[in-house]
Computed example of a mutant assay.
Amino acid sequence: MTEKLLGSIEAGGTKFVCGVGTDNLDIIEKVSFPTTTPEETMPLVFEFFKKYNLKAIGIGSFGPIDIQKESATYGHITSTPKIAWQNYDFVGAMKKKFDLPIAFTTDVNAAAYGEYVAGCGKDLSSCVYYTIGTGVGAGAIQDGRFIEGFSHPEMGHMIVRRHSDDQFKGCCPFHDDCLEGMAAGPAIEKRAGKKGQELSEEEPIWDIEAYYIAQAAYNTTLILSPDVIIFGGGVMKQRHMLAKVHQEFEKLINGYVKTPPLKEYIVIPELDDDPGTIGCLALAKKEIEFS
């Protein structure tokens, strides 16, 4: 193939999703590899991209990561619980193999950007994207720019009010009662003794789950007032969850703030499983403009 393409790496805690696409953000090929160690996973990434004529690569990585370009550790995965990846120079490793412009951000920022340019956030000025899966993370965008400062947001670790029927102590090693510790997939599994996809829609645990997710929407509404809040990730593939979140959100907000209609305001991704890949392609395209 002679056409120069954009590369995408959605580096998640469970798997790496690599893809290539066009300037129109059409995905040409997408593959995934298990996230094991840099020594095992990265050679598969390099091999995948070697067969393409690339002009830029966008990376959305699990974190925490260093996003400050003036920092000595820019492009590194930093204090991740995944021991093998701690202090890994992700961008540096890619630059050694591919001397190209490389955009680097969090995996949830990348997904947020995908929805912003081609999904639920298209033609809006702002959006917030949460992934509720193995972990919980979020990215926020205002007028095409990520909302961040000394580092990227860690909204998945906001403290939430405990549900009155929930005796679970949480599974975050850093915080009691944070959103990730109470609402991520592993929290559901530890409470129920089975994975969420094995539970019926009638299980009371879903009401508890919706209560925590609605608190994330409530806090986001009062802090950022975005045009849309998008909840993705494996937990939100339970299609009955969205209505439950809407119900809990209405109770929490209690008429204090007038939001857009909830069916348009608190939504699931329009891009299904591709927000991260499309977001990385779009960030790669944007990186060329600034390189």
Rank of each mutant, 00 (worst) to 15 (best):
Cys127Arg: 06
Tyr88Val: 00
Val117Lys: 11
Val128Pro: 06
Ser79Asn: 15
Phe104Asn: 00
Val128Arg: 01
Thr78Arg: 09
Lys97Ile: 10
Tyr88Arg: 00
Tyr116Asp: 00
Leu124Arg: 15
Ile147Glu: 04
Gly114Gln: 01
Gly121Thr: 05
Cys120Asn: 15
Pro101His: 10
Val136Met: 10
Met94Ile: 14
Ala110Trp: 09
Thr78Met: 10
Gly135Glu: 03
Gly75Tyr: 00
Asp143Asn: 12
Tyr74Cys: 02
Tyr116Lys: 03
Cys120Gln: 15
Leu124Glu: 15
Val136Phe: 03
Ile147Trp: 05
Thr134Trp: 03
Gln142Trp: 09
Val91Lys: 04
Lys96Ala: 13
Phe98His: 10
Ile77Leu: 04
Lys95Tyr: 03
Phe98Arg: 06
Cys127Met: 08
Thr131Ile: 10
Gly114Glu: 00
Thr80Trp: 02
Val136Ile: 14
Ile147Gly: 09
Thr105Arg: 05
Ala112Cys: 15
Ala112Gly: 14
Gly92Asn: 06
Leu100Met: 05
Lys95Gly: 07
Tyr116Ala: 07
Asp107Phe: 09
Tyr116Thr: 07
Ala138Arg: 05
Lys82Tyr: 05
Glu115Cys: 08
Ala93Thr: 11
Asn109Arg: 04
Gly144Asn: 06
Gly139Asp: 01
Met94Val: 05
Val136His: 02
Ile77Ala: 02
Asn109His: 12
Gly139Ser: 02
Ile147Tyr: 10
Asn109Ile: 06
Asp99Ile: 12
Ala140Gln: 01
Gly114Asp: 00
Lys122Glu: 12
Thr134Glu: 06
Val91His: 08
Cys120Ser: 15
Asp107Lys: 10
Ser79Glu: 13
Tyr130His: 05
Phe90Tyr: 12
Gly119Met: 06
Ile83Lys: 12
Glu115Ser: 07
Gly144Asp: 03
Tyr116Cys: 02
Cys120Arg: 15
Gly137Phe: 08
Ser79Leu: 14
Thr80Arg: 00
Pro101Phe: 09
Gly135Ala: 03
Leu100Arg: 02
Lys96Tyr: 03
Pro101Trp: 13
Cys127Gly: 14
Val117Gln: 10
Phe104Ser: 00
Ile102Leu: 05
Ala140Met: 13
Ile77Ser: 00
Gly121Gln: 07
Val108Trp: 02
Thr131Met: 08
Ala110Met: 09
Val91Met: 11
Pro101Tyr: 06
Thr106Ile: 07
Val108Ile: 11
Gly133Cys: 07
Ala84Ile: 09
Asp123Phe: 14
Asn87Ile: 11
Phe90Thr: 02
Asn109Gln: 09
Gln86Ile: 06
Ala93Glu: 15
Ile102Cys: 04
Gly75Thr: 02
Asp99Arg: 10
Thr78Ile: 09
Ala72Ile: 13
Lys95Asp: 03
Tyr113Trp: 13
Ala138Asp: 04
Ala110Arg: 07
Tyr74Lys: 07
Thr80Asn: 01
Ser125Gln: 14
Phe98Pro: 03
Thr73Ile: 13
Ala112Asp: 06
Asp99Gln: 13
Ile147His: 10
Ile102Gly: 00
Ser79Gly: 14
Gly119Thr: 05
